[in-house]
């Protein structure tokens, strides 16, 4: 388990980084926390000719809450642990910390980056689904300039995004849901910290009369890419305690078509999607009803 040979680059600035990526395009691969990439290299499942280490790009090591408190932007060198511990981000968007607690283990979160996991686009990666759920955006830089892409356009399949090999994902932005909302992440994993067998993040929005105005959920491990389902129709206009949350769970499960793998059958995954959706929506609605 030793990687094949590669040329190692360690740029000092973002400009240098995108210049190297352009120069070696399409043979370059960005190394940030390395928690996914390094095992892939060691097992020779990936053998890029050029590795561009961005760990010196300290300008990207940030977690920033937007001026209006309406969003959280995470730079490419912010570790999961940085995002998890950021008090300001937690204050406006507790879902980030709540979800990050399910991302692997503390030692991995100390190294792994949130942006890296999103750029890696593993269909089991929690933060991909959170970004999709919140209708967030991804900012990419290249020598040609900067562009911002909506999450729904960014993810194009398992481990696949619209990013070009010459582009560096510099940040992602998680919008804070507007109105009276509650958000919850829940998942079932075989062991604590494992990739989930099924996981879901939900946002429930209530109107001024505390009736359900909106409900949507995003899923991991049950689709090739993070999938967002609007479940409002099953519960719209109902008081939190009267809403038919199981109907929303069934609606969600009906829209998903998970596969079998060595850890779980497709039927079990569908069942979990239904059960977890129901649980998460009910809890999120409860949170929304006590929200300011």
């Amino acid at each position: 388990m030793k990687p094949a040979g590669f040329t190692y680059h360690r740029p000092a600035t973002v400009d240098d980084a995108v210049a190297v990526l352009a120069e070696v395009n399409p043979a370059g691969k960005v190394l940030a926390g390395g928690q996914s990439l390094v095992p892939l290299l060691s097992m020779r499942l990936a053998a890029p000719e050029h590795l561009v280490d961005i760990n010196r790009l300290s300008s990207l090591a940030y977690v920033r809450v937007g001026d209006d408190g309406g969003s959280v932007t995470v730079g490419a060198l912010a570790r999961h642990a940085d995002v998890e511990r950021d008090a300001a981000a937690y204050a406006v968007l507790p879902l980030l910390r709540d979800t990050l607690r399910h991302v692997a283990h503390p030692t991995i979160r100390n190294r792994g980056t949130t942006v890296g996991s999103i750029a890696h686009a593993d269909p089991s990666g929690e933060m991909t689904a959170v970004l999709a759920l919140l209708e967030g955006t991804v900012t990419l830089r290249s020598t040609g300039g900067e562009r911002t892409v909506a999450a729904r356009d960014f993810f194009t399949g398992p481990m696949s995004t619209c990013a070009d090999a010459g582009e560096l994902v510099t940040s992602v932005t998680f919008p804070v849901p507007e109105g009276r909302t509650g958000a919850v992440w829940t998942e079932v994993a075989r062991r604590h910290g494992d990739y989930a067998v099924c996981g879901t993040g939900v946002v429930v929005t209530l109107d001024d009369d505390l009736r359900v105005a909106g409900a949507r959920a995003a899923y991991i491990s049950v689709a090739p890419e993070p999938v967002v389902i609007d479940l409002t129709e099953a519960v719209a206009g109902e008081m939190v305690d009267d809403a038919d949350w199981p109907a929303a769970g069934r609606l969600a499960a009906g829209r998903l078509d998970p596969g079998d793998d060595i850890h779980a059958t497709a039927a079990y995954r569908s069942h979990l999607a239904e059960v977890l959706t129901t649980r998460a929506l009910r809890e999120a609605a409860g949170r929304a009803s006590v929200a300011a």
């Binding site: 062991r191 604590h192 990739y195």
Partner: peptide
Amino acid sequence: LYERMVYDDAGQLLNASFMDFLMPYATE
């Protein structure tokens, strides 16, 4: 509750790593 060696019909071991061969953690 966790560990099994998953062979497919061709005799390939499908979980030959600690990611998929589930040894219990302290949490389990």
